[in-house]
């Protein structure tokens, strides 16, 4: 997978990326406002970890609202790795009652910063792309040499101990 960090306007990410852990209580208090809260936070450059994620219908609502607010310069969408709406396995009672499984932990972040690398039913691997990770490529192994150091090196030329190297011819 090729990872490219899109440079967009980032209101809050000058000193790093804010990761907010949101409790179930906090999210439930918000009621219908939770989608607005999540989207506003993500658009501010934050990554949210939701203790109890969104239901599948809330996720779809988040996608819908996200699409209506995508802006080429500052917001390209959301990345939502999580176990939310785990449709792979359900308890017998959930199957009998035909109830969807309850939401589970979920991470929501700006798509230009948060990337899901790998996901299966049990493990999710995601990374947050930072400015530092961009700059890593530019870091060179060479250590810059100052003008003073160059002068010292020049003065040392030929100042080493005189060592005679035996010649094979002798």
């Amino acid at each position: 997978m090729e990872l490219r960090r899109r440079v967009l306007k980032e209101p809050l990410s000058k000193g790093g990326i804010s990761i907010d852990l949101i409790s179930t209580e906090r999210l439930e208090e918000m009621g219908r406002e939770k989608i607005r809260f999540i989207l506003d936070s993500v658009k501010d450059g934050k990554v949210l970890v939701l203790e109890k994620g969104l239901t599948s219908s809330e996720e779809l609502e988040l996608i819908k609202v996200t699409m209506s607010e995508i802006d080429h310069d500052s917001f390209i969408g959301v990345e939502t790795p999580g176990f939310t709406g785990n449709v792979t396995r359900r308890t017998l009672l959930q199957r009998l009652l035909r109830r969807p499984p309850p939401p589970r932990m979920m991470v929501v972040g700006p798509a230009h910063l948060l990337k899901t690398i790998k996901k299966d039913g049990r493990t999710i691997e995601a990374i947050i792309l930072t400015r530092a990770s961009d700059e890593e490529e530019e870091i060179s192994d060479e250590i810059p040499i100052s003008e003073d150091e160059i002068e010292i090196m020049e003065s040392m030329e030929g100042a080493g101990p005189d060592i005679e190297i035996p010649s094979d011819e002798e």
Binding site: S57, P81, G85, R98, P100
Partner: peptide, 19 residues
């Protein structure tokens, strides 16, 4: 491709909820 992408999972969850 990986079947567990979020769109697949979200869609399936919605389809199940809507029966």
């Amino acid at each position: 491709e990986d079947p567990f992408n979020q769109v697949n999972v979200t869609l399936l969850g919605n389809l199940e909820a809507r029966k």
